[in-house]
């Protein structure tokens, strides 16, 4: 049986809102370690990988592995019914055909209970090895979101160039071009404002902005985004959770 209680419903709300436009049907795999999701978008360009570690929950038990096949659009509708500050408990039997969501208002005795019918979802699971990337950058997630939104007004593609002392975002379109250059900086008082670059090799990679527009929906999950890039391989965009992560692997664009 699964019973996982979030101190605040807002975390699961943010997670679902962050991925529901990238993938619609996905399996939430629950184990003693927490909940994981891996799913690929319909165009097979973007892979979503989520881990909500058991330490995120104020109470968590899952005796044996349970798979919840969820339609995220329906899940999002139900989850919006709860208040951000409510306790949220997910409950499912061992071989469930539904999952129950219980919202408890902390300021009153109100308890709201919803159940979502589950689906049999047959998805392919990809093996993702840890790899050494040419460059790893860390920057404020909100700045990355703004840069990508600004440059998406000009082009469908975002070019990212990384050297040891700068990160350059570029977009070239029919109506004009744009670029934003960032330099590494350490902010001791506000570490979340810092920008760091770790470089093994210079990077020049290009990505579809329509996918990046979906990725930056994770911005509210973390003050910082970690971007790991190697030339001619998928980039990893990561928002860290208190325990776990939301990762997006995005295939680049390049000449064959």
């Amino acid at each position: 049986m699964l019973e996982g209680k979030f101190e605040e419903a807002s975390l699961l709300k943010k997670v679902v809102e962050s991925i529901k436009d990238s993938v619609q049907l996905c399996n939430f795999v629950c184990s003693e370690h927490g909940i994981t999701v891996q799913a690929v978008d319909d165009s097979r360009v973007l892979l979503v990988s989520l881990l909500i570690g058991n330490e995120v929950f104020s109470d968590y038990r899952c005796d044996r592995n349970i798979t919840l096949g969820v339609d995220l659009k329906s899940f999002a509708k139900i989850i919006r019914c709860g208040g951000n500050d409510d306790y949220l408990t997910l409950i499912a039997e061992d071989s469930p055909d539904s999952v129950t969501l219980v919202f408890e208002d902390k300021n009153s005795d109100r308890i709201s209970e919803y159940s979502l019918k589950l689906m049999e979802i047959d998805n392919e699971f990809l093996k993702i090895d840890d790899m050494d990337y040419d460059s790893v950058i860390k920057m404020p997630s909100i700045d990355f979101q703004k840069i990508c939104r600004d440059l998406s007004t000009l082009s469908e593609s975002l070019q990212i160039l990384i050297t040891k002392d700068s990160i350059k975002f570029m977009a070239e379109g029919e109506t004009g071009n744009g670029s934003v250059i960032l330099k590494p900086r350490t902010d001791i008082d506000k570490p979340e404002q810092s920008i760091t670059v770790k470089l093994n090799n210079a990077v020049n990679s290009t990505f579809g902005l329509k996918y990046i527009a979906d990725i930056v929906k994770g911005t509210s999950l973390s003050n910082q985004i970690v971007i790991k890039i190697s030339n001619r391989t998928p980039a990893l965009f990561e928002y860290k959770l208190q325990s776990g992560y939301l990762r997006f692997y995005l295939a680049p664009k390049f000449e064959d």
């Binding site: 360009v45 892979l47 392919e124 990809l126 093996k127 993702i128 593609s157 664009k253």
Partner: peptide
Amino acid sequence: TKKQQNIFSFFSKL
């Protein structure tokens, strides 16, 4: 021209 690559070209299925 640059072509959008497919994620399945980089990761193998389990």
